[in-house]
Simulated assay, not measured.
Amino acid sequence: MLVILGWLLALVIAACLAVAAWPQALGLEQAPVVAQVVSMRVGVIGIALALAVVALAFVGWRRVRPFVLGVVSMLLVFALVSGGIHASRGLDDGQALDRASDDLIVLTWNTLGDEPGAEEIARVIDETGADAVMLPETTLPLGVEVAELLGARGNPFWVHTTDYSPSYGALNTTLLISAALGEYTTDLSVGGTRTLPTVVARPDDGDGPVLVSAHPVAPVPQQMRNWRADLDFVAGLCDGSDSVVMAGDFNSTLDHWWSTRTDGGDLGTCRDAASAVGAGAVGSWPTWAPPWLGAQIDHVVATPDWEPVAARVLTGLDDVGTDHRPVLVQLRYRG
């Protein structure tokens, strides 16, 4: 009976580890619990290795030794496989962007309800040379204040904000667009994400990409249905009919997008810029965790007519009030 129970338990452990490593094989990447586990690969790898060490404490017990060694082997294989998947997305956190080029510089930063303040946001935009700035959880008044500061320095920006409640920062999303890119109009006809707002802006003269500041809701238990619907919505914006540059807090990693992929893209036809240039595993959230440990849930994605050149998670702003790090990407138009 003990042997049978041992085999059954080993099979359950193996199944759980397989799902945690690659839930896409069974279409479970957006399932409750699994979605949360796969988003923090490095943390789960650490737990697996700790459990392996604990299990080895029982290896001296002869009757359970084969079971213990089997479990330790599975945990080590899981750590290697999941670690390899994570590393394959890129751990390069030192890439430099060329702000003097004619390329499009995109910055996204969830500001946790205006926490960094207008001066700090304007400083980061100035120093990075960003042309399109996606700011989830940033209100219209702060967006306008940032634009006024930049305009006074000879760097004017247009401000687009969508809100579900102006007084509550998390229910606001702002998009700042450099005047050098031309005039844009917010497109309300395409709909939006369900719980937290997304801004979709189209160029008035049709010359330039559709710019999107996205904010799908987090996959907390009571929001799982809305989270999945939000991911379907943003993926639908990358349907190949428009040139699209989209950035924001997606509350999801590349694993969660697996079922939305189209024509070689990561999210619809859009590709994740950071992973394309070897920086897709550098964590942007939370700021209390080092970048090698955190989750990459803040993204810049673009349709195939935009070639990612460089990407960087800005790690020097962890003490300005928000729990997200800015993500900066250089995109080159190739038509």
Rank of each mutant, 00 (worst) to 15 (best):
V3H: 00
I13T: 11
L17S: 06
A20C: 14
A21S: 08
G27Y: 12
V37A: 06
R41M: 02
V44H: 08
L51R: 01
A52V: 13
A55R: 12
V72M: 11
L76V: 15
A79M: 04
G90L: 03
L91T: 08
D92G: 01
I105F: 06
I105D: 03
W109N: 02
N110M: 10
L112M: 11
D114P: 05
E115L: 08
P116M: 13
I121K: 02
A122T: 03
A132D: 04
V133R: 04
P136N: 00
V146I: 13
L149W: 01
R153F: 03
P156E: 04
P156T: 04
W158R: 08
W158A: 15
H160Y: 13
H160M: 10
H160L: 11
Y164W: 04
Y168C: 01
L171I: 05
S178G: 10
G182W: 06
T185A: 13
T185K: 12
D187N: 14
S189D: 11
V190R: 12
V190K: 09
G191N: 03
G191M: 05
G192C: 06
L196S: 05
L196P: 10
T198A: 05
G208Q: 00
V210A: 09
L211P: 07
S213T: 12
A214I: 06
P216E: 02
V217S: 01
Q222I: 12
N226H: 11
N226A: 15
W227G: 01
R228M: 15
D230S: 11
L231V: 05
D232Y: 08
A235N: 02
L237M: 14
C238T: 05
F250C: 09
N251F: 03
S252E: 05
W257D: 00
W257K: 01
A289T: 07
P291G: 13
L293Q: 03
G294F: 05
G294I: 03
I297Q: 11
V301T: 15
D305E: 14
V309W: 06
A310T: 08
L314P: 01
D319V: 09
G321R: 10
V327I: 14
V327N: 04
Q330S: 10
R332Q: 14
R334K: 14
